[in-house]
């Protein structure tokens, strides 16, 4: 294990988050099993009071969860100088078999945490706890993934050995290799470019429609998720060579480095903001007609739609600027 400050911070906070999550999940289970608003029992009143504490703990925990994705990427990138062969976070994450699974879990957990925060935000603004059981069911679904992430993260950092020779991003994200990353690289740029712009346009267009009419929330949410799914491989196969001005360089991590103006951070932040807000709109759709939420949800969804469109517009603006400013001619 490397005693790097960021590694220690990530490990300790991840461990602390997991402990708090287990505590919250236990009360979440009690809420699912025992919640009865019509009862004035001691247990019910105690659960009502406890739910404020749990909600506060989880809000902080999930906000950290979202920020920790970027800290994880930053840490992986800053550690690359310690490993022979590594040129960026891609190589550092490849030092052992836990780095990439931890990253994938982190991305999934960021999306799930974002949706949970949105549901919790709405539930806390109604007078009759309308989503309390649903948000704790969601919590119990998310919890194993966050615990798995902690285990994976611990395994990754505990098995980091500085004498290991790893691969550089040039070989990991090249067309010749037999891996998922090379499959992503191999996607044809002339298809992924238009697909990226079309999927973003569809998402933003449906967002505009939903913002104006309040109809088509599910479609907007689906298209926002679809745009995210298209955007990740598009960044690898189509956008990144323009940023690096090297036709064969497809690394999604080098753009997090200083040489490229840390452009990857706002790029990915815009993308994540867009998809989380878009998913949030869909997650709230089934509850629009609840009496205590009938006025609240449409206004929250409007704001989320704006956030989603803004996130994707930031992403598109950065991508378009990188393409326009690039000296690469393909």
């Amino acid at each position: 294990m490397l005693l790097h400050p960021a590694v220690i911070a990530l490990l300790l906070t991840s461990l602390l988050s997991s402990i708090l999550l287990l505590y919250s999940a236990y009360y979440g289970y009690l809420v699912i099993q025992q919640w009865d608003l019509s009862s004035g029992s001691e247990l019910q009143l105690s659960l009502e009071r406890r739910t404020y504490l749990i909600s506060t703990i989880l809000t902080y925990l999930f906000v950290f969860q979202i920020l920790s994705l970027f800290l994880y990427l930053f840490t992986a990138d800053s550690l690359h100088t310690l490993f022979v062969g590594a040129m960026c976070a891609a190589g550092t994450l490849h030092v052992n078999g836990y780095g990439y699974p931890a990253l994938l879990l982190k991305i999934f957990n960021v999306l799930a945490a974002g949706v949970w925060l949105i549901v919790n935000f709405v539930d806390n603004r109604a007078y009759d706890y309308p989503l309390v059981q649903k948000k704790y069911v969601l919590l119990l679904v998310i919890s194993p993934f966050i615990l798995a992430e902690t285990v994976m993260l611990a395994q990754y950092f505990l098995h980091l050995e500085p004498n290991i020779i790893t691969s550089c991003c040039g070989s990991l994200f090249s067309e010749g290799a037999q891996s998922i990353s090379s499959n992503l690289v191999s996607l044809p740029a002339r298809i992924m470019g238009p697909a990226l712009y079309l999927s973003m346009a569809a998402s933003i267009g449906s967002g505009l429609g939903f913002y104006r009419t309040g109809k088509g929330g599910y479609l907007f949410s689906l298209l926002a998720a679809g745009a995210f799914v298209v955007a990740i491989p598009a960044v690898i196969s189509f956008v990144s060579p323009y940023i690096y001005e090297l036709p064969g360089h497809h690394c999604p991590f080098c753009i997090l480095q200083r040489e490229y103006g840390y452009v990857g951070y706002p790029l990915y932040a815009g993308l994540l903001g867009g998809v989380v807000a878009g998913l949030g709109v869909g997650a709230l759709m089934p509850f629009r007609k609840r009496e205590s939420l009938a006025l609240l949800i449409p206004s929250v969804q409007k704001r989320l739609t704006l956030v989603s469109m803004l996130g994707y517009l930031v992403f598109l603006a950065i991508v378009t600027y990188c393409l326009a400013a690039s000296n690469l001619v393909q």
């Binding site: 001691e42 019910q44 009143l45 009502e48 404020y52 007078y127 009759d128 706890y129």
Partner: peptide
């Protein structure tokens, strides 16, 4: 303050379960 158990209604509105903001 909130009771340990039991409910209180004001003009038909149950108060003990209300979140603090309400």
């Amino acid at each position: 303050a909130r009771p340990t158990s039991g409910r209180i209604w004001l003009d038909g509105q149950e108060m003990t379960s209300l979140p603090e903001r309400f």
